[in-house]
């Protein structure tokens, strides 16, 4: 079997096999097939990658949800500082309130003391009235002694008039007027003891 026979045999076999079957292609078909193939090549890996990323994200979210993360140290310090500042502010406000209450209490005590002191001070008008009364009495008493004991009627009349002049509304001025009336009238009833210095002193 030489080369020509082999060649003839092969060509006969090829002719007997017939023409191959294939679809006619166009540039658009080829472009569409390339696009489809690229999608087939890139689609599944991209989908797998997306699924992996999604799974990792879900896993991470689940871990974060289950894990109680302690607050960072700085945040804790900051919150403590804030609490301390709030406590300081509250303490300061309480202290100011206490000081205010104490001051008000002191003021009240001082006011009470002043009121007590003021209450302890005697009424000057009344005191003046008493002094006036005492002076008028003294003058009437001296005038009575001049008139009754020393028989110095003129001096006694002057003294009675002075009392009436100085203390015209005082009750001792009335006594002095009564004495003057008595002096100017003739003595009828010496037994009467009105305007007696002893009685006057007793009444005082």
């Amino acid at each position: 079997m030489n080369e020509e026979q082999i060649k003839e045999l092969l060509q006969s076999t090829d002719q007997a096999a017939g023409l191959p079957v294939f679809a006619r292609l166009s540039a658009n078909d080829v472009r569409r097939r390339i696009r489809r193939r690229r999608l087939l090549w890139t689609g599944p890996p991209l989908a797998v990658a997306a699924l992996v990323v999604l799974g990792l994200a879900l896993w991470n979210l689940r871990l974060q949800a289950h894990r109680v993360t302690p607050p960072p140290k700085q945040d804790k310090l900051a919150s403590l500082e804030t609490q301390v500042k709030q406590l300081q502010a509250q303490t300061q406000a309480t202290l100011e309130l206490v000081r205010d209450v104490l001051a008000r209490e002191r003021q009240t005590q001082r006011l009470d003391a002043l009121e007590a002191e003021l209450a302890s001070i005697p009424d000057p008008v009344e005191e003046l009235q008493k002094q006036t009364d005492r002076t008028a009495f003294t003058l009437v008493y001296q005038a009575d002694r001049l008139y009754r004991e020393l028989n110095q009627t003129e001096s006694a009349v002057e003294a009675y008039q002075r009392v009436i002049q100085l203390f015209p509304r005082n009750r001792w001025a009335d006594v002095a007027r009564a004495r003057l009336v008595e002096i100017r009238k003739p003595r009828i009833n010496k037994s009467k003891t009105e305007g007696d210095p002893k009685c006057v002193s007793q009444s005082v």
Binding site: A17, G18, P20, V21, F22, A23, L25, V30, R33, I34, R37
Partner: peptide, 12 residues
């Protein structure tokens, strides 16, 4: 006989 895939691959 069916060489459609190969022909497509070649021209792609």
């Amino acid at each position: 006989q069916d060489v459609d895939d190969i022909v497509q691959d070649v021209f792609m």
